[in-house]
Design a protein around this nucleic acid. Structure first.
Length: 981
DNA sequence: GGATACAATTA
DNA sequence: CTAATTGTATCCA
């Protein structure tokens, strides 16, 4: 470096925090990766490097470096252990941006500097000194007051956000002292964010005045007795040592042993293609264009770079609590942007105020108009999309039309195959006029749906995805690439908050809650009962009002709700546990499972015959015939006419005829109740499974396609319906037979892989219970271990009954145990159950601590969290009604355990396809049953697939959560589900 | 036909 | 004692 050269030093870490807080949240279009701070950083670097002459800095750099903090552990912590101890962990959507900003620096071909044991400020100070000695000038890109001590004749500062230079005069204007006195000024004022003590009661104004009066800090402290103000005098005397310590903490070191010499910072020519590759990866279209223009590169010829994003690495540079925003940064933010919470509220309120006007919706009848709408959508970068079909089952549904919304109030409906005429008389109905030929409309639509640069917003978009995938007009299924789902956003921000009467995450309740709007009821459009018609028979005017409104509402909901993800710190739950799962589950639903009709029909016959036999026996014993399926009639017979002793009663005052009660009666020697239980079991198996399942076999695929609900439970579990394949019998030998009807295609096998004791393992991890952790680490029988701890019985030769009780207690713990419930489960007295619980807590005090802590957390915050940050709300946990409150407490204790297990298997499912594909295995994931995954694949590949599947599942928590307990997965292959499990 | 009660099935 | 769905009976409009 020589005279006339100019060094730019960017305070990278400070900039990251400042940009994060000052700029509105921005996420990458294709995958929701948070990139707001990265974008701000890139724009700033570009400006500094290319337009330097135009800015007020007025100079062009010859040397350039971006400097980051490496870790919060520096020599200052040895001086003062509490230094920066107040700082909290950075927000979750900032974490992935730390690494990206370093990548950005490299893409700009600028030195990227961080050094262990030193703060960025010390490195900056050292380069400043070296540049000064070489006769060059320096500009520090920062507005941090900690750096102002370096300002002098050859060193200036520049605030890139306010586009403002800070020189000697500006420092004096702001703080009332010359830059070389900044150290002493800060020594007096201290800094609550960095936890620099200072002297109490002294702020910047007083400090400047004192330094002016006494000249320097040592003189001031030596002559402190002469100060008139009593409090100030006492504080200065009492905290003199703190002031001296603070001076050492704020003084920057300019003697860092640099890894990179000053001359290595010489600015090289910009590598346009490299930078463009990075910017394309980030999808910063405006800046990409600008860089391409300036460097005369052809952006379209450059591929997006392969940038690694580590959302989850919990350790490493920038990530320990040492790096919260400094006070200056936080104060600077509100003038330039808004806090995420305020922004979310403002946005929601603005959207709510926009009125609905159904008359403005357009019916699109020509390809030109459709193209115009699609162009508007692409121009905007996002569009709400909704399909209209003739069925709620996406595997049956035929597409009738679709709607788009580009801005609130601007929406259209594109009818595709609306018909008119009398459908009952063959051939008398015909396609309505004014519709685009379906093929043309769909190929235009494909362009939009498959364009990764345009975000498609749906309400339960999995439905639309399955419908569109089945619309393979050109032989290729239509994909929806790059999407958001308002149902899932709602689920992530308010699971549990809106349960019950308020009505969950469907469009109608969401529109009511967020927009104060009641959508046109479906009944008003299609009628009800036997007058109901399918959507393709609705007149196009009515269809447009209804369908376009749906897209309009979806768009508004997205605008109103999306910012809440950032405000609540749950972006990663949505992006890592919900959104990527949508196509995975869509694929499973489309795959379906093969069910053997013959086996079911044979079983149905068997069950029917047995039930009929038992029915006759029952009438014989009862002395009359009655409706066994009616609990009311049954109760009258048993407890009225036959005079048996009743057990418990139901909440309506009826005698209970539950299996529990009937089994107790059977144990007392009455033969009839036993037969009732048998009859009920058989009729249940027949009606719910063997009779109903064949009706779900799809006419074309010949397979059964369940529907998974992603937003149905409070805890994060999926649910399955139509048919529910998550409650196929397994407990009894009769029931198990039903599983033999779930088969692989000829030449294929089914693999069932299930987690062993996942919830107890999660409990052992969360509550950190040494005995449980050890037992799982050693792979020993967990229920026997519990029994042994509690009852002092050795595991060897333990009676089955003892282990059974311990097992019930272990389950009870996961369910937020109560003496009442445990007594019920084990059929013992409540007092005895209470004794068990007491003894359990004595042996495992950590469990009680976990339960108390969880309840306290839920009461304070109104929600609990899983290991992965998913929230479950329990608004009634403060209820004055004891049973309501207790119920909520138990649910709140259970939710982090059940929910963490649900999160883990979701993670496994999301990763699974990629791993199997990479290993060239043609395995299809078919079903999920909470802790189990079912696959179908060629028999020859089963041996190779099993270890792979186990590996993905066992390591699914990593790297986000490093479990203290290993996860264990058992997997087997067989030709049917019964043998595979 | 729609809502509710009760009993069954699963993890 | 946690989380779900389904089928039948029953009551009500």
């Amino acid at each position: 470096m020589k005279k006339g050269d100019h060094l730019f030093l960017v305070d990278g870490s400070a900039y990251i925090f400042r940009a994060y807080h000052a700029l509105p949240p921005l996420t990458r279009k294709s995958d929701g990766l948070p990139v707001g701070a990265v974008s701000g950083f890139c724009n700033m670097l570009w400006k500094l490097l290319r337009n330097a002459r135009d800015t007020e800095v007025g100079v062009t750099p010859t040397h350039f470096a971006v400097i980051f903090d490496y870790s919060s552990k520096t020599f200052r912590n040895e001086l003062y252990g509490e230094y920066k101890a107040n700082r909290s962990a950075p927000p979750e959507d900032l974490v992935p941006q730390f690494g990206l900003i370093r990548e950005a620096t490299r893409a700009f071909d600028v030195a990227c500097i961080e050094q262990e044991g030193f703060e960025a400020d010390d490195i900056i100070a050292t380069y400043c000194r070296l540049a000064c000695e070489a006769g060059g000038d320096t500009t520090i890109i920062s507005s941090d007051k900690d750096l102002m001590q370096l300002v002098g004749p050859t060193v200036g500062m520049y605030d890139p956000m306010k586009d403002k230079e800070i020189g000697v005069d500006e420092v004096i204007e702001k703080f009332g002292v010359r830059p070389d006195k900044m150290i002493e000024l800060q020594a007096l004022t201290g800094d609550s964010i960095d936890n620099v003590p200072g002297v109490p009661g002294i702020g910047p104004k007083t400090a400047a005045q004192l330094l002016e009066e006494f000249g320097d800090l040592d003189t001031l402290l030596a002559q402190a007795e002469t100060i008139k103000q009593k409090k100030r005098r006492e504080n200065l005397i009492e905290h003199a040592d703190n002031a001296r310590l603070s001076r050492e903490l704020v003084r920057l070191r300019d003697d860092v042993d640099l890894e990179l010499p000053l001359d290595a910072l010489t600015l090289s020519d910009l590598n346009g293609p490299k930078l463009i590759g990075f910017l394309k990866t980030m999808q910063f279209t405006t800046l990409t264009k600008r860089v391409a223009d300036q460097t005369e590169a052809d952006a379209s010829a450059i591929d997006a770079a392969d940038v690694k994003v580590e959302w989850e690495s919990a350790h490493g540079p920038d990530l320990d609590p040492g790096e919260g925003p400094s006070k200056d940064d936080v104060l600077a933010a509100p003038t330039e942007g808004m806090a995420p919470q305020a922004l979310a509220e403002k946005r929601a309120a603005e959207i709510r105020d926009i009125a609905f006007d159904h008359s403005k919706y357009e019916t699109v009848g020509t390809l030109e108009r459709l193209r115009a709408w699609i162009a508007a959508a692409r121009d905007q970068g996002h569009v709400a999309f909704d399909t209209e079909t003739d069925s709620l089952d996406p595997m049956q549904a035929k597409l009738c039309g679709f709607s788009l919304a580009v801005e609130p109030g601007y929406a259209c409906y594109v009818p595709l195959c609306h018909r008119e005429g009398d459908g009952d008389l063959l051939g008398s109905d015909s396609l309505c006029a004014g519709q685009i030929p379906e093929r043309d409309a769909l190929s235009a639509l494909r362009e939009l749906l498959e364009d990764p640069a345009c975000l498609k917003i749906g309400q339960n978009i999995k439905f639309d995805m399955v419908v569109m995938a089945r619309c393979d007009v050109e032989g290729e299924p239509i994909e929806i690439v790059n999407f958001d789902d308002t149902m899932l956003i709602s689920y992530v921000i308010e699971a549990g908050r809106t349960a019950g009467s308020q009505g969950g995450h469907g469009m109608d309740p969401l529109a009511d809650r967020w927009l104060g709007h009641k959508p046109i009821p479906y009944k008003d459009v299609c009628g009800t009962g036997k007058n109901a018609v399918t959507f393709d028979r609705v007149t196009m005017d009515k269809a447009t009002e209804y369908a376009a409104e749906d897209a309009d509402i979806t768009l508004r909901l997205w605008l109103a709700m999306k910012p809440r993800l950032t405000a609540d710190g749950v972006v990663s739950v949505y992006e890592r546990l919900e959104r990527p799962l949508v196509p995975v589950i869509g694929k499973m639903e489309r795959a379906g499972v093969s069910v053997d009709r013959q086996i079911l029909s044979r079983l149905s016959g068997e069950f029917g015959q047995q039930a009929a036999g038992i029915e006759a026996e029952i009438y014989e014993m009862a002395g009359e015939s009655f409706n066994i399926g009616s609990p009311k009639q049954l109760g009258d017979i048993l407890f009225g006419r036959m005079g048996l002793p009743g057990g418990s009663k139901t909440k309506t005052g009826q005698w209970s005829t539950s299996a529990r009660v009937l089994e107790d009666l059977a144990a007392e020697g009455h033969p009839l109740p036993r037969r009732i239980v048998d009859w009920r079991q058989l009729t249940k198996l027949k009606s719910t499974y063997t009779d109903a399942l064949p009706g779900y076999i799809h006419p074309e695929t010949k397979r059964v396609h369940t529907s998974y609900q992603m937003a149905a439970t409070t805890t994060g579990r999926l649910s399955s319906s139509e048919p529910n394949l998550q409650n196929i019998p397994i407990r009894t030998s009769e029931g198990r037979k039903i599983r033999t009807a779930f088969i692989a295609e000829p030449g294929n096998v089914l693999i069932s892989a299930d987690y062993s004791q996942i919830e107890l393992r999660i409990l052992a991890h969360i509550a950190d219970i040494p005995q449980l952790r050890q037992a799982f680490a050693e792979g020993i029988d967990i229920h026997a271990m519990t029994a042994s701890e509690m009852f002092g019985v050795p595991v060897e030769g333990m009676p089955g009954e003892v282990r059974r009780r311990a097992k019930a207690i272990n389950f009870g713990i996961i369910y937020g145990i109560s003496a009442f419930g445990l007594a019920n489960q084990l059929g013992i007295e409540r007092s005895e159950a209470g004794e068990y619980i007491k003894r359990y807590f004595e042996r495992f005090p950590g469990i009680r601590d976990y339960m108390d802590a969880t309840k306290a957390f839920a009461r304070e915050h109104g929600y609990v969290e899983t290991l992965f940050g998913r929230r479950a709300y329990y608004p009634d946990i403060k209820s004055s009604n004891h049973s309501v409150r207790s119920f909520n407490e138990r649910a709140a204790i259970n939710a982090p355990i059940q929910g963490s297990a649900a999160d883990i298997i979701r993670r496994a499912m999301i990763r699974m396809d990629g791993v199997l594909e990479k290993a060239k295995l043609n395995a299809t994931m078919l079903l999920q049953v909470h802790d189990e995954l079912i696959f179908e694949l060629p028999e020859s590949q089963a041996e190779a697939a099993i270890p792979l599947i186990r590996d993905v599942m066992e390591n699914a928590a990593m790297p986000a959560v490093d479990m203290a307990v290993p996860l264990q997965v058992d997997a087997q292959a067989a030709s049917n589900w019964d043998e595979a499990h």
